[in-house]
Measured scan of single mutants.
Amino acid sequence: RALPCPAHVVFRYQAGREDELTITEGEWLEVIEEGDADEWVKARNQHGEVGFVPERYLNFPD
């Protein structure tokens, strides 16, 4: 997929490290980079905060 792209959060995730982003179910993010580890992506939330989130917690519109 082309980046950046929108993504809808389907599961809540609490950041466990400083470089991760806490996300809430129902929130929209902008995915800006593929992650440095499998199944992680770097995203920006509506407040401009950036961090890594688990890709499987997101839904990408067609």
Rank of each mutant, 00 (worst) to 15 (best):
Q46F: 08
H47I: 08
H8A: 04
G51D: 02
E33G: 14
E30Y: 07
F52A: 07
D19C: 14
I32M: 09
F60E: 03
G16F: 09
Y57F: 13
E55L: 14
R12C: 11
A2N: 15
H8P: 01
L3Q: 05
D38K: 11
Y13Q: 05
D19G: 15
A7Y: 04
V41L: 08
V31W: 01
W28C: 13
D36A: 09
T24R: 12
E34M: 11
D19P: 05
A43F: 02
V53E: 00
T22P: 02
E25T: 14
A37W: 11
E18I: 05
E18S: 10
P54V: 03
L21R: 00
Y57K: 07
P61A: 12
Q14L: 08
A15M: 01
L58F: 01
Q14T: 08
P6V: 07
V41F: 07
V10M: 13
G51N: 00
G48F: 06
R1L: 04
T22C: 07
G35F: 09
G16Q: 13
A15Q: 07
N45F: 01
L29C: 01
Q46M: 10
D36H: 14
Q46C: 12
E49C: 12
H47K: 14
C5I: 05
N59S: 12
P6T: 08
Q46Y: 10
Y13A: 04
E25C: 06
E33I: 02
F11I: 15
R44L: 06
R56W: 07
A43G: 06
E20V: 03
G16E: 15
R1W: 04
E27K: 05
D38E: 15
L29G: 00
A2E: 15
P6L: 06
R17E: 12
F11R: 12
E33M: 07
A2G: 15
N59D: 14
V41W: 08
A15L: 02
D38Q: 13
E49T: 11
E49N: 14
Y13V: 02
V50S: 09
D38R: 14
L29F: 00
D62S: 13
F60S: 04
E25R: 06
E55V: 14
F52V: 10
G48K: 06
L3C: 10
E20L: 02
E55P: 10
E49S: 12
G48Y: 04
V9Y: 03
V50A: 08
V41Q: 00
F11S: 13
R12V: 05
P6Q: 08
G51V: 01
L29M: 04
E18T: 12
F52D: 05
V10Y: 10
E27W: 01
N45H: 09
F60L: 08
F11Q: 10
V53P: 01
H8K: 07
R1F: 14
D19H: 12
H47M: 12
R12Y: 14
T22N: 15
L58C: 04
P4K: 05
L21T: 00
G26R: 03
W40V: 10
C5P: 01
D62N: 08
G48C: 07
A37R: 15
E49I: 15
R12A: 14
P4T: 09
L29A: 02
G26D: 11
P4W: 03
Q46I: 09
F52Y: 15
A7V: 05
E49A: 09
V31Y: 05
Q14V: 09
G16N: 15
E30V: 08
I32F: 13
R17Y: 04
A7P: 01
N59Y: 12
G26W: 04
P61T: 15
K42A: 04
Y57E: 03
V10E: 07
H8R: 08
V50F: 06
L3S: 08
D19N: 12
D19A: 15
R12W: 05
R44V: 09
L21A: 08
E34F: 15
P61L: 13
R17L: 05
V53D: 02
D36E: 14
E49K: 12
L21C: 00
L58Y: 01
I23M: 07
P6M: 05
K42C: 07
K42R: 08
R1T: 06
V50L: 06
F11H: 14
P6S: 06
V50I: 07
A37M: 13
F60N: 04
E18Y: 07
V9Q: 03
T22D: 10
L58Q: 01
V41C: 12
P61F: 12
E20N: 05
Q14A: 09
H8I: 04
A7R: 03
Y57P: 03
C5N: 00
L21P: 00
F52K: 14
Y57H: 15
E27V: 01
Q14Y: 07
T24N: 08
L21K: 00
G16Y: 15
L58R: 01
H47V: 13
K42T: 11
P6C: 10
I23G: 03
D36N: 10
G51I: 00
A2K: 15
N45K: 05
E33D: 09
G51Y: 02
D62P: 07
E55I: 14
G16K: 14
P54A: 08
T24C: 09
V31R: 02
E18K: 07
R56V: 10
E20A: 08
E27P: 01
R56M: 10
Y13F: 11
R17N: 15
A7D: 00
G35L: 06
N45C: 00
L21V: 05
R1I: 11
I23V: 12
